[in-house]
Design a protein around this nucleic acid. Structure first.
Lengths: 190, 190
DNA sequence: GTCTATAATTTGATAGAC
DNA sequence: GTCTATCAAATTATAGAC
C-alpha cells in the first residue's frame, strides 16, 4: 500500500485532526477539508454526514491511539517516574513535531459551545487517561503506601500540569518550555 | 450610576469576554454581541471596527483585571503557599460562579488560528502572570535558597497545573475538581 | 451614537446525475 | 464514491441616513 492509496476517509480524519488541533473545532470547515484532501465538500459529507459526527470520530480515534502509544513494552522498573515520563513523552512528540497540543485539550477549552457527542468524547479522553495514570501509579512503589483517593488526585494533578504546559508552550511557540516541567512533575513523587 | 447606565462599550466587552470564555474566539459573532447587548451589529463595529480589535481589547482588559485581583493587601506571612493559594482562588472564583475557565487559556488553545494582535495579548497574559508568581516566590522563604531559573521553572509549572486543572474541571463540569489540585501544588514547595 | 440597508463571502448541508 | 448544482443561513464589514 503506497502513500497515495490511503483511503479518502482516513485522509479526511487525518486532516480534520490536524485542523482542530491547530484552530479548534469552530476553526475549520468542510470546505477546508475538501480542498486539502482534494475532493468536493459533498464527498466529505458522504463519509461524515454532520460536522459533529466528524468531530466525535476524530476525538475517539485520537484517544484510542494516544492510549495505545502509552503501552510501550516497559523495560524499566515500572516506577511512578517512568509512567509520568512516558505520558510526557507522548505529548511532547507532537508538540515538537508540528507545534500541536492535545486534541482533547483544545476541545475542552471550547467545550461549552460544542455538540454533545463531541464533548462526550473529549470527556472520555480525560477519564481514560487519568485511569491509565492511576493504574500505573498504583503498581509503582510510590503508590504502594497511598490510598486510591490520593493516587487519583495525583493523577489528575499530573495530567493537568501536562495539559496546561502544552497550552503555555504552544502560545509562546517554544516547545522546549514543555520539557522543563519534568523536574516539577517527578518531584511530587518524592 | 445605576446598572442600566453602564455604557455600551463596556457591555460589549463584558459580553464578548463571557462568550469567548464559553465558546472560544471562533465561537461567537458580532450578531451574538449585538443581540445580547440590544443594539445592531453595526453599532458594535462603531466601537470595535474589527473582530480582532475586539478580541485583543477583551484579552488586555482581562489580564489587567486578573493581575489587579491578585494584589490583595496581604495579612499573611507572604509565604510561597500564600501566593499559590491567591492565584488558585482567583481562577476558582469564576469557575464556580459560572463554570468559566481562564480567557487566555481558551485563546491559547485556539492560538494557531487567531489574528496576531489577539495572540499577542494572550501571550502577554502568561508572561505577566508568570512574572507575578516568580516575584512572589522569590520573596518567600522557599525562594530564598533557590536560583532565579529554578523559581521561574516552578512558576510555569504552577501556572500550567492551574490552567490544565481549569480545562479538566470544566469539561467534566465539576468545578470542585479544581479544588483538589491545591495539595499537589503546595506539596512542591515542601 | 445608533440605525437601515446591503455587500461579499463562507458556512453546513442536501438532491440527484454519473 | 465522487461529482455538479444549489440552498438557506450566518459571517465580517461598510455606506450613509437620522
Amino acid at each position: 500500500m503506497t502513500k497515495d492509496s490511503v483511503d479518502t476517509e482516513t485522509r479526511i480524519l487525518d486532516l480534520a485532526e490536524h485542523l482542530i488541533r491547530k484552530n479548534g473545532y469552530n476553526g475549520f470547515s468542510f470546505r477546508d477539508i475538501a480542498t486539502g484532501v482534494g475532493v468536493k465538500s459533498s464527498s466529505v459529507h458522504y463519509y461524515f454526514p454532520t460536522k459533529a459526527e466528524l468531530g466525535a470520530k476524530v476525538a475517539r480515534r485520537y484517544t484510542d491511539r494516544f492510549l495505545e502509544s502509552l503501552d510501550v513494552p516497559d523495560p524499566n522498573s515500572g516506577s511512578a517516574e517512568d509512567a509520568v515520563a512516558i505520558m510526557h513523552g507522548a505529548f511532547f512528540n507532537s508538540l515538537k513535531r508540528d507545534g500541536q497540543m492535545c486534541l482533547c485539550g483544545v476541545l475542552a477549552a471550547e467545550s461549552a459551545g460544542l455538540p454533545e457527542e463531541v464533548i462526550a468524547e473529549a470527556k472520555s479522553f480525560f477519564q481514560r487517561t487519568t485511569d491509565w495514570l492511576t493504574a500505573n501509579l498504583q503498581k509503582s512503589s510510590w503508590g504502594k503506601n497511598r490510598t486510591k483517593d490520593k493516587i487519583e488526585q495525583q493523577s489528575m494533578a499530573i495530567l493537568a500540569q501536562l495539559e496546561g504546559g502544552l497550552l503555555i508552550a504552544r502560545v509562546r511557540k517554544e516547545p522546549e518550555l514543555f520539557q522543563i516541567l519534568m523536574p516539577a512533575l517527578t518531584a511530587e513523587q518524592n
